[in-house]
């Protein structure tokens, strides 16, 4: 094409042919040169493709290894067991401390009631004690809020784990579902139990006495 630079190698070969032929170049000679050039280009491309193929192969192995590692982490076990248990345990802490706090507040209110029936000095003293109890009980609100933050953090971790599983495709999910619970975890006791899982002392006593 006019104005475009000719390949230097092609130019050199054409010049040589031109000189050899005394100013004439046969069309077969030009075809031969172009054929050689095309072969060279094919070889060059082939080397690049092999390199690229090897790189992609390495990348594929790397992804497989990561998928295996994620599967080994048992993401569904993390989601369905550990995170769920942790969340339930934290909820149980909030419920238990709330119930205990109400019991303590009830006792402090009774102290105030009694104070109202006593002489001034004793009444003031008892009211001060009740006030200190009320002040101390504000801990429940703070711990409840802090535990709420931890529960929200667990939710975020759960979402991130599941996003990672989804990103690496069904292979990870299948292997994760086939996974068995680790022996170490199974050997541990899990007390104290949550309300739904727990037996009351009288139910346990009944089992020991043969009535259960």
């Amino acid at each position: 094409m006019p104005g475009e630079e000719i390949d230097p190698e092609l130019a050199r070969r054409l010049r040589a042919l031109h000189q050899e032929g005394g100013g004439f170049v046969r069309i077969e000679q030009i075809a031969g040169v172009i054929g050689e050039l095309l072969e060279r280009i094919r070889e060059e491309h082939s080397r690049q493709e092999v390199f690229l193929y090897r790189e992609l192969g390495g990348l594929s192995e790397y992804i497989k290894a990561i998928k295996a590692e994620i599967a080994a982490l048992r993401p569904y076990e993390i989601q369905n067991h550990y995170l769920q248990v942790a969340s339930d345990e934290l909820d149980a802490i909030v419920d238990a401390t709330e119930a205990a706090t109400h019991a303590i507040l009830g006792a402090a209110e009774e102290i105030e009631d009694i104070a109202g029936r006593l002489d001034d000095m004793e009444a003031v003293r008892l009211t001060e004690i009740a006030t200190r109890v009320y002040e101390a009980c504000t801990f429940q609100d703070i711990t409840g809020q802090r535990i709420g933050k931890v529960v929200r953090a667990l939710k975020v971790i759960e979402e991130r784990v599941m996003t990672l599983v989804a990103a690496f495709g069904p292979g990870v999910e299948e292997r994760a579902e086939r996974g068995e619970a680790s022996a170490g975890a199974a050997e541990l006791l899990n007390g104290p139990q949550l309300g739904g899982d727990a037996s009351r002392q009288d139910e346990i006593d009944a089992l020991f006495s043969g009535n259960g």
């Binding site: 709330e98 507040l105 009740a130 006030t131 429940q140």
Partner: peptide, 17 residues
């Protein structure tokens, strides 16, 4: 105004005092 019943109870008692 509070979503924790314990805090409502504490505030009510302190206000009563």
């Amino acid at each position: 105004v509070d979503d924790y019943k314990t805090m409502l109870r504490i505030l009510r008692n302190l206000l009563k005092q």
